[in-house]
Simulated scan of single mutants.
Amino acid sequence: MSFFKKLFSSAKKPVVQSAPPVTQPDVPDDLPDWSEIEAAHDAARVAGAECLDRHWRSVGAVEQDVLSYMISPSFSGGPDWPSTRQAYRVVRRGDSIILATEGLSDPFDGTDDMSNGFEMELFIETADIPEHAKGAVGDVDPFKRSWAFELLETLAKTVANAGGITHSLDQHGVLSVDVPGFSQSHHIDGQVPALFVTDDDCVGVLLGGPQPDFPTRLDDMPLSPVRLVPVVLITAAELAYVRSGGRAAREDLVSRLNAAGIGYVSSLQRASVV
């Protein structure tokens, strides 16, 4: 055998190893179908908005446009609402304006929870919005410069941070909230009289009462019932009264507001009832 034949015949052939078989992980059969969930949430959001629209149209004249944001505040460090949709409706009712949140009752993004979010929306009614902050019919943007919108927006953030307040309303009845930083506000300071401002720079509100003259429970929302929670501005003396008296004082204040014919409407012109 020639030298070259010996050389090539003695060279070892490379060993080809077979790759180990690829095994697919076991996938549970009961994992949710996120495409179906997202489609159901989208449909529920549309149906919920239509339900709210029908309700508010039974109360007053609803503006077609809503107050909203170019970019959802949840993308810039703001509290998370159930979805990224954060908006406010404007309802004209005689001489009064109702501003109402729109989105606190949206289904939760990114979960398979099938409920209407926090199952609530907030609203405030008042006739005392300055002319420069009261848009003509068809123009809602000026309302952003009103004390009522700033107050409602602040309380919506508080509710979102708390994950909703329906449980607290069920447990404690009408709630009172201190809203601090009056002197640092953009529009509340300068529009709300001193009668409503405490010595420690707060304004106070009741949440959940007195009750308005229209239904506040929507049982025909697509996923679960939703309640509309009134926001009622109270005077500094009234806030001091409920701070010291708890639930009994809150319930008594509701009775006094009703007896005085003030009810749930936030009036800047009224006298204190305590």
Rank of each mutant, 00 (worst) to 15 (best):
F108Q: 02
D65M: 09
P32A: 11
R247T: 14
H167Y: 13
A39P: 01
F108P: 01
D219E: 15
I98E: 03
Q86S: 13
V62W: 03
G208H: 12
D33S: 09
V273L: 03
G261V: 14
S105V: 04
L257Q: 04
A40V: 06
D170I: 00
S272I: 08
A127K: 14
I188N: 04
F196T: 09
P230W: 04
P222A: 08
P14F: 03
R93Y: 07
V226G: 09
A240Q: 15
D252N: 14
P32G: 08
L233G: 05
V174W: 10
R256A: 10
T23G: 00
T198V: 06
V229D: 00
V159P: 01
Q211P: 05
I129W: 03
A61D: 13
T166F: 01
A100F: 08
G173P: 06
S146D: 15
G190A: 10
L206D: 09
S255M: 12
D109H: 07
I37K: 05
G117S: 03
H167M: 06
P21L: 14
G163S: 07
F182V: 14
G78E: 07
K6Q: 11
K157Q: 12
D29V: 08
L155P: 00
I37A: 01
Q184F: 02
S115Q: 12
S185Y: 06
L228D: 04
D220S: 05
S68A: 05
K13N: 01
R247E: 15
G164V: 03
D128H: 10
D33C: 00
E125R: 05
E36K: 15
P20V: 08
R45A: 06
L195R: 15
D200M: 01
F149Y: 15
P28A: 09
R54H: 12
A156V: 12
P230E: 05
S255C: 05
T23P: 00
S68I: 00
Q184C: 04
V174F: 14
G209K: 06
Q64E: 12
D199C: 01
S74A: 15
W56A: 00
T235M: 08
V232W: 07
V66F: 13
G77K: 04
R243Y: 11
A40C: 06
W147D: 04
S244G: 14
H167Q: 13
V274M: 09
S185R: 06
L195Q: 12
Q64G: 03
A160E: 07
L7Q: 07
Q17P: 10
